[in-house]
Design a protein around this nucleic acid. Structure first.
Length: 455
RNA sequence: GAGGGCGUAGCUCAGUAGGUUAGAGCGACACUUUGUGGCAGUGUAGGUCGUGGGUUCGAGACCCAUCGUUCUCCCCA
């Protein structure tokens, strides 16, 4: 028999890890609810055509596809072979696969809104905390199964939504004690730059290249631009754009001069200004950084875009989002604008672990261990234990009569702070001994006193 | 999709330029110690050296392949 193993990029989570992860989930969920979002869950799998073509060319390749059932049926052989030919051409084929694991939470949400728009009250605010899957190659901070926590608002174009989502980010990361900066940019600003440099059809080429600036440097970006057909003059404009520096206000002023009266550009700048000004009144402006190199790979964004970066941590973005003004039209329902953000829990966990940001109190489970010192003693201890449990004190009794040594060591290993000794002497006198394992202090008290004991 | 690093006990690793019977620390278990743990002592268990080929008198070590893992690029949370 071969050794058991896990699929690449997936993990088991032990007790301590689960407790830490739940701490993150609970913190984020509480903030979502305080901000007026209600929960939604969607299936792990979607129809393949719901997902295909929504995440760009790269994204399509990273979707986990599910093999159809019944492919072993001889009658389907011809069909299946035809389908496989399509796969070899790089297309997908419904005769071989018609379902896939969800790649993110935004598209399934758009699908949900499109299916239920008649029944929803707009603006509709939902949050969703579920795993997603990507057929990516695992590496640092990158998993094939990971959780996203999304909050989206659809049915409203107001920039107040963007303002509120940023406030949500700031609140959540403050509660988690993770210092972050939130980068913001606008797809319209990127579009304006594209229009100035070769036309709007160059938008995607342009954003892919400039997004790499901080990784590969200007020299290589320039080379890439040359091969993509940008002229020297256009490259100079792009360089000027990328070199904008200073405070948020200064950068925006310089950008405005650079983009001139380009309509999309001015719209993007106005939106950016609105957000920044608003947050000067909330005190949250200090977390915001206008970053015109921020592009984000997902094609469906149309307005402001965000990305969250943990300060002083070697980790990609731990959250991202933006405005998509017509996502549901992909599913036949036009004119429902939306904006949303996502938290990457697995990366947040990695950052918090690396920087030791988890509170120490979350890793304890059992509070009191009752020693098992014989049949009659255990019966009495068991009854007392149930009473304590009813008072919400987590207790357990050692299941076998064993030596003190063994029971003590069990308590230590499980990090149980208190033990209760109830042996033959205590049973006779209707008392028990409560011992605090970290201080070593113990007291003998009556059963009634135990029930009201402050652990 | 492209390219590197690493696979030796449950864990972290050592293992010299191929040379008898593969090592340590930690952990586990037992005993010292059947009414008081953490410390200490003694002992026990645990390995087809990732797998399959090859070179060699001889391979944990060298070569090839394969699988796993990890990191980088691409892209992303």
């Amino acid at each position: 028999m071969s050794k058991p193993s896990l699929p690449q990029g997936t993990r088991d989570f032990n007790a301590v890890t689960v407790q830490k992860r739940q701490y993150i989930f609970q913190t984020i969920r509480a903030v979502f609810e305080e901000f007026g979002f209600t929960p939604l869950e969607t299936p792990a799998m979607e129809n393949l055509d719901t997902l295909m073509g929504k995440y760009g060319e790269e994204g399509d390749k990273l979707i986990f596809k599910i093999l159809n059932n019944g492919l072993d049926h001889p009658q389907k052989k011809e069909q299946t072979i035809l389908g496989f030919d399509k796969i070899l051409e790089g297309k997908s084929s419904s005769t071989i696969t018609e379902r896939a694991l969800r790649y993110d939470l935004t598209i399934p949400f758009a699908r949900y809104v499109a299916m239920n728009h008649g029944a929803l009250t707009f603006p509709f605010k939902r949050y969703q905390i579920q795993p997603v899957w990507r057929a990516d190659r695992p590496q640092k901070g990158r998993y094939r199964e990971f959780y996203q926590c999304d909050a989206d608002i659809v049915g409203s174009e107001s920039l107040l939504n963007e303002v509120d989502l940023i406030a949500l980010y700031v609140t959540a990361f403050q509660r988690l004690n993770v210092p972050v900066e939130i980068k913001i940019n606008s797809r319209q600003i990127l579009l304006a730059l594209a229009e100035l440099c070769g036309g709007s059809d160059q938008l995607i080429n342009l954003t892919i290249s400039i997004d790499k600036l901080d990784k590969i440097g200007w020299e290589k970006v320039q080379q890439e631009l040359t091969t993509k057909g940008f002229t020297t003059e256009q490259q100079n404009n792009i360089q000027a754009y990328l070199n904008l520096s200073g405070t948020n206000t200064e950068k925006i002023q310089k950008l405005s001069a650079l983009l001139g009266d380009n309509a999309a550009g001015q719209e993007g700048i106005a939106a950016l200004n609105y957000i920044l000004n608003y947050h000067t009144h909330t005190g949250m402006e200090s977390h915001l950084v206008a970053d015109f190199t921020l592009a984000r790979g997902l094609n469906y964004y149309t307005g402001l875009i965000f990305e969250v970066k943990a300060k002083d941590a070697d980790m990609g973005s731990i959250g991202g989002g933006g405005r998509y003004n017509d996502l549901t039209s992909l599913f036949g329902v036009p004119n429902i604008p939306g904006v949303g953000i996502s938290f990457g829990v697995d990366r947040i966990y990695d950052v918090m672990e690396e920087k030791n940001l988890f509170p120490t109190s979350i890793s304890q489970s059992t509070q009191v261990l009752f020693f098992n010192l014989g049949e009659a003693e255990a019966l009495q201890a068991y009854q007392l234990m149930l009473t304590l449990r009813n008072k919400k004190i987590a207790c357990e009794i050692y299941p076998e009569k064993s030596k003190f040594d063994k029971q003590f060591k069990y308590a230590e290993k499980k990090n149980i702070p208190t033990i209760v000794i109830l042996g033959s002497e205590e049973l006779a006198s209707k008392k028990c001994t409560v011992k605090n394992l970290s201080t070593g202090i113990q007291t003998t008290i009556s059963f009634d006193e135990l029930i009201d004991f402050q652990f």
